[in-house]
Design a protein around this nucleic acid. Sequence first.
DNA 1: CTCTTAAATGCAACTTAGTCGCATTTACTT
DNA 2: AAGTAAATGCGACTAAGTTGCATTTAAGAG
Lengths: 124, 124
Amino acid sequence: MQIEKIIEEKNLKLTTARKELLGIFVASSKPLCFEDIKSKLNMDKATFYRNVSKFESEAILNSFESNDKKRYYEINESAHAHFVCNRCNQIECLKEKLDYKLRGYIIADVIFKGVCKQCNQMSL
Amino acid sequence: MQIEKIIEEKNLKLTTARKELLGIFVASSKPLCFEDIKSKLNMDKATFYRNVSKFESEAILNSFESNDKKRYYEINESAHAHFVCNRCNQIECLKEKLDYKLRGYIIADVIFKGVCKQCNQMSL
DNA sequence: CTCTTAAATGCAACTTAGTCGCATTTACTT
DNA sequence: AAGTAAATGCGACTAAGTTGCATTTAAGAG
Ligand SMILES: [Mn+2]
Ligand SMILES: [Mn+2]
Ligand SMILES: [Zn+2]
Ligand SMILES: [Zn+2]
């Protein structure tokens, strides 16, 4: 199981909470917030937040804030942009690689906001 | 004074709070959150939030959430992207027009996140 | 395998941006 | 000037996330 390897490679203690948490993120195809998974979690929210923060500082996860005042976390692998729908608040990972350039800036993330395909079609 | 005209054109009551608030946004060159201007404001925060919400639903303002769990508002005129610095949390309005396309989606806003020019230079 | 210890956890209290209900005030209408 | 609906101020509340502290647990040494 590679989850344990990821944790150990960063010299983090291999706790049950960390295995459970990282397993959920590895299995997910989209960014998740605490709210999304709290019913599945066997840990306190303080433990969730302390661990996602640690994972982020070790570059295992990355995160961003959406439109709904919640912070979303996902496995940090291929850099890609996200689309956040202002109507349904759904978040989609976009396939396109980030190749945006701005002279003098480092671009770590691109977030498009607007109306997603589904909400767009519903309004026709 | 055009501030009063903007408010009246939308058939909103011309209150002193609205004139004060809209005056601040018209004079600003960047998006503002409640925190940014509360010391200047002669109104309760409930009045601030109720009015920016109303201004937004009337398309006088638009808003987005930054990295710091705060919502930022600005005058809704030219569509442009924003850069949010993950280090200093500063928000910049980018000059470039939004001409991004995603089939099936409506893009209302683009937010780049990363490291701004200033923070980037400091780390050299 | 047992002992030691630093790190991780659970819990409750706290912080903070924003919201809401309600009594009072104010802008517009006639 | 009077009537009325909308706007305001205030205090209580909500919800995401944080923090302090007592307890538990993982990892390493012997
Ligand atoms: Mn993603
Ligand atoms: Mn702007
Ligand atoms: Zn949608
Ligand atoms: Zn910066």
